[in-house]
Write a protein that binds this DNA or RNA. Sequence first.
DNA 1: TTGTAGGCGTTATCAA
DNA 2: TTGATAACGCCTACAA
Lengths: 335, 335
Amino acid sequence: MESPPSPHRDPDGGEARRRTATIYEVAERAGVSIATVSRVLRGTIPVAPGTAERVREAVAELRYRPSHLGRGLAERQHAANGIVFPDLSGPYYAEVVLGYESVAAELGRSVLILSSHGRPTARDMVLDLAARVDGLVVCTRTVDDETVREVAATGTPVVLIARPPVADVDTITTENRDSAARLADHLLGHGYRRFVFLGDADRSSDFAERFEGVRQVIPAIIPITCGFDEDGGFRAAEAVRLQKPDAVICGNDEVALGLTRATRGSVPVTGWDDVMAARYAGLTTVRQPMRELGARAARLLDERITGARGEPHHDILPTQLVVRSSCGPHPKEET
Amino acid sequence: MESPPSPHRDPDGGEARRRTATIYEVAERAGVSIATVSRVLRGTIPVAPGTAERVREAVAELRYRPSHLGRGLAERQHAANGIVFPDLSGPYYAEVVLGYESVAAELGRSVLILSSHGRPTARDMVLDLAARVDGLVVCTRTVDDETVREVAATGTPVVLIARPPVADVDTITTENRDSAARLADHLLGHGYRRFVFLGDADRSSDFAERFEGVRQVIPAIIPITCGFDEDGGFRAAEAVRLQKPDAVICGNDEVALGLTRATRGSVPVTGWDDVMAARYAGLTTVRQPMRELGARAARLLDERITGARGEPHHDILPTQLVVRSSCGPHPKEET
DNA sequence: TTGTAGGCGTTATCAA
DNA sequence: TTGATAACGCCTACAA
């Protein structure tokens, strides 16, 4: 007998880690060619019912699952999407990612996550991630514009979340300016006159827009810079106190919560996002549709991946003022 | 002139989506063979300094990034890990995933996430995910034991989080029974005598262990079943009221928070996990090291992937009772 | 309806 | 130190 026609080795003895079956083994077991196996699995080209049945049996018996590596290489695609965010702690990004994963999964794509954490190697990690997905979502300022452009130049579709447009990539943001103005109006209704804005407008376009929106109504508002999380808000308490504000408008809920903890609620405060903790802290805030942000990004990306050309999208999702107790007892409306 | 020796087509005209450079183009540009390019990129085998330099230049000019698909196929590995969890909402899994991503990234592995949501196709999705990673973390009861076994049988290392052992896969959990008993003791110290346990011990080993731990101290505790989230707790309020308990021990913070919202704090309550909202709600709870859970899983997985054999690990991480106001004003200790 | 064979982008083994 | 070239697992014209 000659050696078997298959160019592939037989599975090894089996004492070491068990190999996963290949299409060749399925084909051999079903007594057909690998082309036929591929056809019944993909359902592209009709196969004789009997043959198809034998193939399916072989697949089941061998517990065969096609290799994504082989398939991806042949099809020139990954069937996977990526998403980059600064950090998952704090429900904001967790929700965004969840919304993203949810529809990506529906669309048959796996999702790869990457938290930049603020690692200096973020750029490289993102470029690497981009090389193993069909499309990429970049949240906020996790990497610089240059990197975004480089990924986009590769031809890999990119969607930016909560970030100003770069080149002509798609963008999804939430409405900031108007709701910020509305929030400011509400606070003015409380009778407050002296305000502090707490956050870092230079490092987040969201924060910048919120600040602008507020300042439109309260030109004299005093900006104070701090980190994006609870700790940032907590630490800023002293600086805030020095300004003796009637109320403090914070860039997001975590900052507001941190500040509240430090001031023990002695100063009226507002946040932004409406994370779960905000409800229990009685925090007045602006709710944004975090999950929808991710979900929409996934859909948009899918359209681009599957070939949609057209002009760049720049979707803006609506937000909603949520008044609770942290901004103080509201005086009667006088209208 | 003859046609070029490379078996690969020239890049297309360039009007459509731009292709990413391949190793052949780098080799051609540097005037070497692809083998040499591969060698300088991997740094495995020494290459003449001058040659290496030329290759690096070509790589930079072409912005070449090796294809993970090609590489993975040749190396028979993915350089990626997966993690499966029921849902990312609620800070618990968000933190676990974050801890996981954090160390996985350090170890040079991408991470693929999959939320089972409770989709009926979860089993298939997990099997599919398992086929595209080198190792997999499965949280809680996202899929049945059978599926876990099937993945493990493939040879893909698996680590279970917050779930009882299956076959001989590694396991990481947090301590439940003792801390539950401690919690019960504390509540007894308040003078409470009639208790309800709110959760679903049948669908979570964590809940089951917590219930057992509590019941050790309070044999007469009344179990009531509800969903795992805020809504579950909220809806269970009526059933709880009917029992007129002195205090309610909930399986996790979200349930406790939901119940609290429904009862407006009229009944002493405790949770479990210590999520962010718990702090602001003044919830007495048991803190578990969520991020560490994920981080450790990533390390353990990496060891298995890189060849560690040995006995299965069954790590148990310590937890910590956190007393706040939700369990009521504490009477003076009398010791 | 089915099989053959070339290609997808890398790695790694032989020779040279 | 380098270059051909055979895998790796799959898809898909092209033939039969």
